[in-house]
């Protein structure tokens, strides 16, 4: 498809979003990442039954932690798509990049 999406996104591949832990997301923000988003399969079609639902709960947990700390909770997000939806992947990448650009840099960066 040779689709374009923003180059500032670093992809970390995991076997399933169920593998993504609270510490993976929190650690990234603590080390200065401006945002983190998880892209899982569509709800109801996880190959491991509920990996993406677990990820969603963990994203919610990280959002709560960010709020407690005083950082915008929306720097961490969960997206869902099916593996055949390349264009949607690129679209989400653009959407997240725009969203983070609007929020500005991670406030922890200069501290």
């Amino acid at each position: 498809m040779r689709l374009n999406y923003p180059t500032n996104i670093k992809i970390i591949r995991v076997p399933c979003t169920g593998k993504v832990d609270v510490m993976h997301m929190l650690g990234a923000i603590n080390k200065g990442a401006d945002g983190v988003y998880c892209v899982g399969c569509l709800e109801g079609s996880c190959h491991y039954n509920e990996g993406n639902l677990r990820c969603k709960e963990r994203v919610n947990h990280v959002q709560t932690i960010l709020e407690e700390v005083g950082i915008e909770r929306d720097r961490v997000r969960m997206y869902n798509l099916s593996s055949g939806e390349g264009p949607t992947f690129a679209e989400y990448a653009k959407e997240m990049t725009e969203h983070i650009k609007n929020l500005g840099p991670n406030p922890l960066k200069n501290k």
Binding site: L26, N30, I65, E68, V69, P107, L108
Partner: peptide, 12 residues
């Protein structure tokens, strides 16, 4: 998780 949270909050 708690250690990271404290570290982040205190930096903020």
């Amino acid at each position: 998780v708690l250690t990271t949270e404290i570290e982040m909050a205190r930096k903020m």
